[in-house]
């Protein structure tokens, strides 16, 4: 007996960790008006069963309040950030809701906080709906993907998530807010029409490079994390089970350095970063070895997805 009470107490303490807010919805206020009208009628006609009905409905309202509250309690959230995106593309997160309660949860609306400064009382305006969980079974988890619009480069955090529900009768609006730290890197938006900068060296060299390109196989070296898979020497791998990547000869002069200073005539930082971003993408897809030079840092020429990511990350996090 005492054990059972202790267990109840523990679970109650557990549920107190997350604050749950509850207010009557518009339909809830309508319900109250209905009850008052009914009570008036019952009193006027001295109708005992009228009273009884009115009290039953009031009591059902009370039960609904408990159930609304129950519908959001004992939930824990886990958010994982998915791949980086370019500015303007939606940032995607994976939300996993874990229900530690013995009650199933239904119809939970998930909303993310909109950017900007919102006062404490603007519960509703400050959030916009990003997802809906129709059902989370007792002692079970459910996952959904959430996406948030990106408006600036850099780290985009999922920020505050509001879980809200009108379940079961729509008379009460219940919500609870979770602060989450998962963040997605947002690269600058690729933009700008400038052609890739000339590699250092003569026009002839450049033409030659274009002809021979990267197709001149020069040898193998051990595969490093981040190198594109299409460069893996699969035949060699099959032979001795050592992962190697094919190296192509590129004359020194075929290296590009993407420089911040080259865009001095663009005085807008974001426009410069957008152009650099575009160059990085073009250089990578063209198979060049490229380096990045920013006022506060630089990356030596290289190529591959990992290098591209390093470059884009530098651009995303650049503080001018």
């Amino acid at each position: 007996m005492t054990e059972a009470i202790t267990a109840l107490w523990q679970r109650w303490r557990q549920s107190q960790k997350q604050r749950i807010y509850i207010i009557p919805s518009r339909a809830g206020y309508g319900y109250v008006a209905l009850l008052l009208l009914m009570l008036l009628g019952a009193i006027n006609y001295n109708n005992s069963l009228g009273h009884l009905l009115c009290f039953l409905l009031a009591s059902i309202g009370h039960v609904t309040m408990h159930q609304s509250h129950t519908n959001l309690r004992l939930l824990t959230l886990k958010v994982t950030a998915l791949d980086p995106v370019f500015k303007g593309q939606p940032a995607r997160f994976r939300l996993t809701v874990n229900n530690h309660d013995e009650h199933d949860k239904y119809q939970i609306e998930i909303a993310g906080k909109k950017p900007g400064n919102w006062s404490r009382w603007q519960f509703f305006k400050a959030y916009e709906k990003t997802g809906l969980l129709e059902h989370v079974e007792a002692d079970n988890t459910r996952s959904i993907n959430l996406s948030r619009d990106t408006h600036q480069r850099g780290w985009q955090s999922i920020g505050k998530l509001r879980l809200a529900s009108l379940y079961p009768l729509g008379l009460f609006y219940t919500w609870t807010v979770y602060q989450q730290n998962a963040r997605v890197l947002v690269y600058p938006e690729p933009a700008g029409k400038r052609p890739l900068p000339e590699p250092p060296g003569s026009d002839r060299q450049r033409t030659q490079r274009e002809h021979s390109g990267d197709d001149d196989f020069s040898g193998l070296r051990n595969y490093r994390e981040g190198e594109p898979l299409h460069r893996v020497a699969w035949k060699a791998l099959a032979r001795d089970e050592v992962m190697r990547s094919k190296q192509f000869s590129s004359p020194e002069g075929h290296q590009l350095i993407l420089r911040w200073q080259d865009l001095a005539d663009l005085n807008d930082t974001e426009a410069r970063l957008s152009q650099l971003c575009r160059w990085v993408l073009e250089a990578e897809s063209a198979g060049h070895r490229y380096g990045l030079e920013l006022p506060d840092s630089w990356l030596p020429p290289s190529q591959g997805d990992a290098h591209q990511h390093q470059c884009l990350k530098k651009l995303a996090l650049y503080h001018g």
Binding site: L56, V63, Q107
Partner: peptide, 30 residues
Amino acid sequence: ISVNTSTSAQSLKKRLGLSGKMVLKALPVM
């Protein structure tokens, strides 16, 4: 209940059951 939940998550039988259970739970306060 049916307009506040999805029919796939809660069947008619479950909704009626929940509604009946709510009425029973409401009896003491009533």
